[in-house]
C-alpha cells in the first residue's frame, strides 16, 4: 500500500491506492475499513489534498462493495471488473483528468485480473460477517 501511494503521487497518475483498497475490502471484508481509512489519509498527505477526502471516498467505495458483497461472492468476473473499471475511471477522471487513456485501461485490466486471480486462490477471504447462503 505504501509503495502504491508513493508511485501514485510521485510519477504515475493512476489510482493504485484505490485499486488496492478495493481488493483489500474484497479480501478482508469489514476488517479492512481501518486500513482503507489510513491509506486514504496517507494518500491525502502525500498528494497535498484536503486531509480526509480520499479516506472518505475509499470508505464509500468499501461500503458499496460490502453492500453488494453477495454479488461479489458469486465471483462474477464481469460484475467485479465493471465495478473496478467504473470506480477507477471516475476517480482518474476527477483527480487526474485521465479519460479513456489506453495505457491506463490496460493497466487496470491487467492489475484487476491478476488481483482477482489472487482472490480466487485465497481461501480465507470474506466479504461479510453474514454466513453465505446454503444451496
Amino acid at each position: 500500500m505504501v509503495l502504491a501511494i508513493i508511485i501514485e503521487t510521485v510519477f504515475l497518475s493512476f489510482p493504485f491506492t484505490l485499486l488496492l483498497s478495493m481488493v483489500a475490502v474484497m479480501l478482508l471484508g469489514r476488517k479492512s475499513l481501518w486500513l482503507v481509512f489510513l491509506a486514504g489519509i496517507s494518500l491525502d498527505l502525500f498528494s497535498l489534498r484536503l486531509l480526509g477526502l480520499d479516506s472518505l471516498i475509499f470508505l464509500l467505495v468499501a461500503a458499496l462493495i460490502l453492500r453488494y458483497s453477495r454479488k461479489f461472492q458469486l465471483q462474477s468476473v464481469w460484475y467485479v471488473l465493471s465495478f473496478i473499471f467504473t470506480a477507477v475511471g471516475l476517480y482518474s477522471l476527477y483527480f487526474y483528468q485521465q479519460f479513456f487513456n489506453l495505457l491506463y485501461l490496460l493497466l487496470t485490466l491487467i492489475l484487476s485480473v491478476s488481483l482477482m486471480y489472487f482472490l480466487s486462490f485465497s481461501v480465507n477471504y470474506e466479504y461479510t460477517d453474514k454466513k453465505p447462503l446454503a444451496v
Binding site: W34, I41, L50, L51, G52, L59, A62
Partner: peptide
C-alpha cells in the same frame, strides 16, 4: 466502525479546510 471512520473523515476535511 464504518460510521465512526466516515465521521472522522468529514471532521478532518472540515478542519483541514
Amino acid at each position: 466502525t464504518f460510521f465512526l471512520l466516515v465521521l472522522s473523515s468529514l471532521i478532518l476535511i472540515l478542519l483541514d479546510y
